[in-house]
């Protein structure tokens, strides 16, 4: 029954699960970064709105850790009004800067990531031989939301909810659902249970009405 339910052009459930879970592990092992998308969407947005801040941040992430440490130390000393020599003791090994730089990703990288997901989706469709330009989401969507402007309005409204909701919750399917739940993070478990339940409830509601 479960295996018979495989939708032909797509991976069956266990291959899909292995692929996505494997990708999350690989990214952690190689990048020391958990898988997540909505944060990068937000970074991309901020990068588009404030390119100058992104450039400064880019320089900081790519700065020499020792240099960054010295700069942070000097700024702290100035803020506290003490000579910088008094700041350097046994405990002022440059630990702050590498810790800051590790796992941080520049806005440019966030934008590249977002763009790369688009390209990856295209490659996936090409691989299945199903790449084509389509202007609608199919008859099921049309039955619920119509076509043309009403459909676009529904997508716009739904999209706003997705963007607003994921930022409010601090994560989405990947950040909370995959990366957070697999580490038993309480916020992620609650978030995932809630958005999945809300999506199911909304789907049943829409079908009941339609």
């Amino acid at each position: 029954m479960l295996l018979a339910n495989v939708a032909e052009p797509y991976l069956n459930w266990w291959m899909a699960g292995l692929a996505l879970g494997g990708l999350a592990i690989a990214q952690w092992l190689i990048e020391r970064r958990t898988l997540g998308v909505s944060g990068f969407v937000d970074r991309t947005l901020r990068g588009l709105l404030k390119p100058r801040v992104s450039q400064q941040e880019h320089r900081m992430v790519h700065a020499d850790p020792a240099e960054l440490h010295a700069a942070l130390l000097a700024a702290t000393a100035e803020e506290m009004g003490v000579p910088v020599e008094r700041m350097s003791g046994r405990r002022s090994q440059p630990v702050a800067a590498p810790a800051l730089a590790r796992g941080l990703v520049t806005t440019r990288a966030a934008m590249l990531y977002v763009a790369a997901i688009v390209v990856g989706g295209g490659l996936g469709a090409l691989h299945r031989g199903s790449w084509s330009i389509t202007t609608d989401l199919g008859p099921q969507f049309a039955a619920l939301w119509g076509e043309g402007p009403p459909a676009a309005l529904a997508l716009l409204f739904g999209g706003v909810l997705v963007g607003f909701g994921t930022r409010m919750a601090g994560g989405c399917t990947s950040g909370h659902g995959l990366s957070g739940c697999s580490r038993f993070q309480i916020g992620s478990l609650v978030s995932t249970a809630t958005f999945m339940a809300a999506a199911v409830a909304m789907t049943f509601l829409l079908r009941g009405l339609g």
Binding site: F141, V162, C172
Partner: peptide, 21 residues
């Protein structure tokens, strides 16, 4: 923000069929 945000996200996902990724 977890619960209200996730509810909004879930409803939006059911409408559009998409999450950010």
């Amino acid at each position: 923000g977890i619960v209200p945000g996730s509810i909004l996200f879930g409803v939006g996902w059911a409408i559009t069929g998409v999450c950010p990724g």
